[in-house]
Amino acid sequence: MGRDAAGNPVGLTNAHCFIDEQGNELVGAKVYRDASPAGTAFSPAPLTGSSPDLATGAIGTVTYVSTPNNLLNSGSKGLDYRSSSWTRAGSPPPARTLVGNAWGAQHSSPIIGILDAMNAHGGMGAGFHLTT
């Protein structure tokens, strides 16, 4: 989580989670905190175990979805990120470095590429920086 050049709170995550089975980008979808127990590298959380925190309500809205880059995507490969506006998520996590994103060990997108793409796309997310 961070802010864009206009000061809007923005969150980043992988894009493939915000594309439905028909390939539609879920721009405008509400984002909820996942209340299910987290997994680890050696014991991943079950995919069927996601539990949105409906009591807290939506904490943001998807504003942009890039082309995915995972191996399961048969189309062109993109940077696989999405940006969201957020309205409430608690205190920002302590972070000093942005690295990139990945879904498994088969690939990743460098954060410099993602930030360059966000700046080129403009609007929400352009000028993204960490909130400290």
Rank of each mutant, 00 (worst) to 15 (best):
R3I: 14
D4F: 04
A5N: 07
A6W: 02
A6S: 10
A6F: 04
G7P: 09
V10F: 00
G11I: 04
N14T: 12
N14Y: 03
F18M: 04
I19Q: 05
D20L: 02
D20G: 04
E21Y: 14
E21K: 14
G23D: 04
G23T: 10
E25K: 15
E25Q: 12
K30C: 01
K30W: 06
K30V: 01
V31Y: 14
Y32H: 09
R33E: 12
R33G: 11
D34N: 15
A35M: 07
S36V: 09
A38G: 06
G39D: 14
G39I: 11
G39T: 11
G39W: 05
T40V: 06
S43I: 13
S43N: 11
P44T: 06
A45E: 15
P46D: 11
P46L: 14
L47P: 09
S50K: 12
S50L: 14
S50Q: 10
S51G: 05
P52H: 11
P52K: 13
D53C: 08
L54I: 09
L54Q: 12
T56W: 06
T56V: 03
A58C: 06
I59K: 09
T61H: 08
T61V: 15
T61K: 04
T63L: 09
Y64V: 13
S66E: 14
T67S: 11
P68A: 07
N69D: 12
N69W: 14
L71A: 13
L72Q: 09
S74T: 13
S74L: 12
S76W: 00
K77Q: 13
G78A: 06
G78E: 13
L79V: 00
L79H: 00
Y81G: 08
S83L: 12
S84E: 02
S84F: 00
S84A: 08
S84M: 13
S85T: 15
W86T: 00
W86M: 15
W86R: 01
T87L: 05
R88W: 05
R88H: 07
A89F: 14
G90K: 13
G90A: 04
G90Y: 13
P92W: 01
P93A: 13
P93S: 09
A95T: 10
A95D: 02
R96H: 11
T97H: 08
T97Q: 05
T97P: 01
L98T: 11
V99K: 03
V99T: 11
V99D: 02
N101Y: 08
N101F: 15
N101G: 11
A102D: 01
A102N: 09
A102I: 01
W103C: 05
Q106P: 06
S108T: 01
S108K: 13
S109Q: 02
S109R: 03
S109H: 02
P110M: 02
P110V: 02
I111F: 09
I112H: 07
G113L: 03
G113Q: 07
I114M: 14
I114N: 00
I114R: 00
I114E: 01
L115F: 06
L115M: 06
L115D: 00
D116N: 10
D116Q: 12
M118Q: 04
M118D: 05
N119L: 02
N119M: 00
H121G: 02
G122V: 04
M124Y: 10
G125C: 02
A126Q: 10
L130T: 10
L130G: 14
T131R: 08
T131W: 14
